[in-house]
Design a binder for these strands. Structure first.
Lengths: 263, 263
DNA sequence: GCGCGCACGTGACCTTGGTCACTTGCGAAA
DNA sequence: TTTCGCAAGTGACCAAGGTCACGTGCGCGC
């Protein structure tokens, strides 16, 4: 795409060599930054496949294709057979599951650097979650067969993948604890807000962060109704536990929130 | 232990070679069947590390130690640093997490052939769950350092491990769906019973199985109270959806249960 | 046999939080 | 500026289910 400027919006295969040394980003026609391929995306090397041998990186480059999605686009759908993995370079992605009656549970919001669709791609089962772009997204796609062959040839990478899966599992169990063991919605919301500030905080002891989710989405993350989230927010504000200024959340009384969250 | 008959109850290191061709089991002094090592345990080869090269199997044998636990024993505890993995050969193990106030959530009951403690061992984080022997248990223990070195040298095995992790993750997500998206406890119980019969059923279209759990444990699996489970059971019996004969559960009206479970 | 412990059964009560229905407020498009 | 649409705020209502309290039945050890 970057050197042809012809193709459309979705997946743009790019298999002709490596671009180390070139500028990492290029401006795309429709205004998004386009990442050339995996090697020019800092995340792929730094977080997932760090410390791979040069030949392995070369090979990785060859099987990777850059793709981009507009806000609201769906990368893959729960139940769909796994096509491959997406290495998120730019923009955040909502990973959710939902029941037939429309109720949705957001499992997590993936940040740049994460690998999406890994468990399904590895096991050959259908994607267990649905991935929606919350913002315009840049991702590197690797097809299942390419990826499996790559892992077969590079045991080091397979081990890295196993570690990544282990961490994803950890996160899932933490989520389950929070949803399954809580006594009240307030407990779940307090825990959610603390976790959110811990991972998206801007220093200062993680007492403040941009909260870019609607009440509806927060409700879907903690397994509650939208109204309950609204009520809890006003309740927490009234009790001086937090403040909301625009899209910025400030935890005024972190100790009390931690106490509410059940230590 | 099997060849020394001296040590106590827990972990019995055994690093002196391979015993292929010998009888797979030996009778231990205290009445449990002792498995010599990983190679004589059918599960290790068949389910997890199947199709490994002979040298890899040999190596695996060298780093594996047989261990056994009485009913009620704890293999590892949530929060404890990961010591290594346990390949379950015999007996079932309850994997749970609990909050400070004592509330417990049973994530799953592991059956023979499963590898326990894998995510924590791979990532180097603490065990995310507590493992309790529901029955007398035989397991093969592999220490973390031995295991990681083994995986580094045998990429094939690392890939198998990644697949196992992916499947564990899938199961966790399914559990989360069931707990997080259900509208009622009845829905969760119906789903649980159907799943249980599907995995522990004795043929016949999975309408019947031994239910070896107490109401308390079932409650902890579906995130409800013991009384609610009891009430739902009597309710389901009354509605002719199921029968309980001794420890045998019979689903008389599977369709209705599936409908209750939300398709 | 007797008593103890534990799993199960059941009723009463009451809090939580889901649902519905509506209003308010805000930002972007027309 | 007006309007549309969506997010947020709020009250009333009510069912689900957690909690407490107690009784029952069964198996096991002494």
């Amino acid at each position: 795409m970057a050197d042809e400027s012809t193709s459309g919006f979705r997946i743009v295969p790019r298999r002709n060599g490596c671009t180390i040394g070139r500028g990492p980003y290029m401006r795309a026609p429709y205004g998004l930054e386009i990442i050339e391929n995996c090697l020019t995306c800092p995340h792929l090397q730094e977080r997932v496949f760090c410390n791979l041998s040069p030949p392995a990186l070369q090979r990785l480059s060859a099987i990777t294709s850059a793709s981009s999605y507009p806000k609201g686009a769906t990368l893959f759908v729960e139940g769909q057979m796994a096509r491959g993995v997406f290495v998120l370079c730019n923009g955040r992605v909502k990973l959710s599951t939902s029941s037939i009656d429309g109720k949705t549970l957001i499992v997590r919001i993936a940040d740049p650097g994460e690998v999406l669709g890994l468990p399904a791609t590895i096991t050959g089962k259908p994607y267990e979650l649905t991935a929606d772009a919350v913002e315009p997204v840049q991702a590197n796609f690797i097809s299942r067969t390419d990826f499996l062959n790559f892992l077969r040839d590079h045991g080091e990478a397979a081990l890295r993948v196993a570690q990544q899966l282990g961490e994803t599992y950890h996160a899932a169990i933490a989520e389950m604890r929070s949803i399954g063991l809580a006594h009240s919605a307030g407990e779940k919301l307090a825990r959610f807000l603390l976790d959110w500030c811990a991972s998206h905080g801007n220093g200062k002891g993680e007492t403040s962060a941009k909260l870019t989710l609607t009440h509806e989405e927060i409700a879907q993350m903690i397994g509650a109704s939208r109204e309950t989230v609204t009520r809890l927010f006003t309740d927490f504000k009234k009790k001086q536990l937090l403040q909301v200024k625009g899209s910025t959340l400030i935890l005024s009384n972190k100790e009390a929130l931690e106490h509410l969250a059940g230590s």
